[in-house]
Amino acid sequence: PEELKSPEDLARQSHLNSKPIDFTNYAPVRPGKKKTLLSDSKYESKDYQLPKWKEAFGELVIRTLNLDMDKVRSGPVAGSYYYALCKNVALQYEGEKLSETAKFFYQDLKLPRTFSQWFQITILHEWLLFVRMRAMPFKYGRNYQQKLVDRTFTDIEARLFDEMNVTTGRIVDQYLKDFNTQLRGAVFAYDEGFYTDDATLAAALWRNLFGGRKNIDMVHLEAMVRYVRSQLYVLSRMSDRDFAVGSFKFVPPDETVERLTAEQEAQLKQKTIEKYESIDNDPKILPSDRSRLSYKN
């Protein structure tokens, strides 16, 4: 039909050069001590290899106790991998170079480089995942959501102490309560927008992500609506199994999502089915690779 542009191209083509009025208490993220992305635990580091004997012991435990791996996996996948994805999108420190995705939010969309803005961008991405998690079987989807939220708040608490130099627990608690209110408000508003129409979604983005700025650039708003809807489209084409083992990544703002043709979709499904059938039918399948989640939906 008509030309498709990536959200970034769309945002950049705007000629509106008004400066957004920003009345937030400008608090840059300028840490004395920077936290690692997730934790200092060796189990969460990328290059760590579990010793073979531990691996074998783990598999034995899973087999003997017949553990529900779909439940167990929610921790490492939602709490660790998916949280890291969300956190990383717009993570920024003053004086440091921005990542490509962060540039889209802070430079192209002219959002303020503050901690609370980072939080808003992060929870928008978490909400995108929530929408997909709801479509999993209830007990698993709920578990995934819980793990993601829990991890978010433990991380924010640590970041407030370490990076924002808040010294008293009482103030941190206040912030956490405030963040919790923001999270619930945003999820509710995005849910409503997702289900109803683009105009409602745009209003929700305006209020939460753009802080309700009066001289909003409609082109930026349009770019964000496209961004959100295209991510959800990708999520909707993914099987439960694929999503649950952590195969999803957010599409970067400088890439364009094109709709699949019926043929491509059938091919994609076929490939997924073949992949997981071969895993499941392998007699030597590791207990930890087992899953009851559907790879056909």
Binding site: V131, A135, M136, Y140, S236, N297
Partner: peptide
């Protein structure tokens, strides 16, 4: 996104 997300299986 179709019914898959608008009428999510879990709820």
């Amino acid at each position: 996104v179709g019914e898959k997300l608008y009428k999510p299986a879990g709820n």
